[in-house]
């Protein structure tokens, strides 16, 4: 087969694969590229800008690859082969200069974005931030609202356009908390507290998940973040307060026992300083419980 035909066939084949994949995703939510939160939108911008910048170095490389492979093939009658020919060694300046230039620009952008999008950094907003404490358990997420003195399992309700300040810890192997449409991941670890600041730009329900392996219940650690108006949030918080189940230390230790695929649960009040005592458990030297 002539190399030209080969090239055409390949182009068609790979385009078909690409179109097929696009068609497969037509009804799906490509969460990372479809942000609904302040942070996720900025992170998408970082992703897109970086990729476009890199194409500056990658496109010439791939073009030359196929061009040279075609032009300098042994079977080409126009081949002007010379075994001792070598490109001018000053070409090295270009070969080093091009990737260095691209990477330097990327490095500056990265330095800026990593500071701007530091998960610990409080967000600027006229609205007062809401604090939610997150405890990664085997295998469910416990969310404590210290100001409202309520708690939930595998469900978060938040007011939209309000900064949410998450404090995370774990009472189980380390885990990662992720709501892709609102922003990036953050670790939750025993005896430690990490922070994550997110904000939903619009109302909606967003999927959240656990992304660090932590045992057999990993896949079932999904939760939903519901963003709605401040009024909705207030009335929701009130309804939770009026429900019957409080989260005492006793209920907590029962909850902390391993269980899989937990449904959403609501708690009308929370033992005071529960988050801190969960964290301090590992500071005082109490051994980890066996399963």
């Amino acid at each position: 087969m002539k190399p030209k035909y080969k090239f055409v066939i390949l182009t068609i084949l790979f385009s078909l694969i690409a179109f097929f994949l696009l068609w497969l995703t037509k009804n799906s939510n490509i969460a990372v590229l479809n942000p609904k939160g302040l942070i996720a939108a900025s992170e998408r911008r970082v992703i897109v800008t970086s990729l476009l910048l890199m194409l500056l170095a990658v496109v010439p490389a791939l073009t030359m690859l196929f061009l040279f492979a075609y032009r300098f093939r042994a079977s080409n009658p126009k081949n002007n082969y010379n075994p001792n020919y070598s490109l001018d060694s000053r070409m090295q300046i270009l070969w080093w200069g091009l990737p260095i230039a691209v990477i330097l620009v990327l490095a500056v952008l990265t330095f800026k974005s990593v500071h701007q999008l530091d998960p610990f950094k409080a967000l600027n907003s006229p609205n007062r931030p809401l604090t939610i404490q997150v405890v990664a358990l085997n295998w469910k997420w416990l969310f404590i609202y210290p100001e409202q003195n309520i708690a939930t399992v595998n469900f978060i309700q938040i007011p939209q356009k309000t900064p949410i300040h998450f404090e995370l810890t774990a009472d189980a192997p380390m885990n990662l908390f992720w709501v892709p449409q609102l922003g990036g991941q953050m670790s939750a670890m025993q005896g430690m507290s990490t922070q994550l600041n997110l904000m939903a730009n619009e109302a909606g329900e967003y999927n959240g998940s656990a992304s660090e392996i932590n045992g057999k219940g990993l896949a079932g650690m999904r939760f939903v973040v519901k963003a709605a108006s401040q009024e909705d949030f207030n009335s929701w918080a009130q309804s939770v307060k009026n429900s019957s189940k409080p989260l005492s230390l006793e209920t907590y230790s029962k909850l902390a026992e391993p269980s899989e695929n937990n449904p959403k649960a609501l708690y009308s009040s929370v033992e005071s300083d529960l988050f801190k005592s969960v964290m301090m458990k590992y500071m005082s030297g109490e051994p980890e419980k066996s399963e």
Binding site: V32, A40, E43, R44, V46, T110, S113, Q185
Partner: peptide
């Protein structure tokens, strides 16, 4: 290189 950018990695890590 994309994931080397921490801000992008927050969204791509362990995915």
């Amino acid at each position: 290189v994309l994931m080397a950018s921490p801000a992008a990695d927050y969204q791509l890590h362990n995915s």
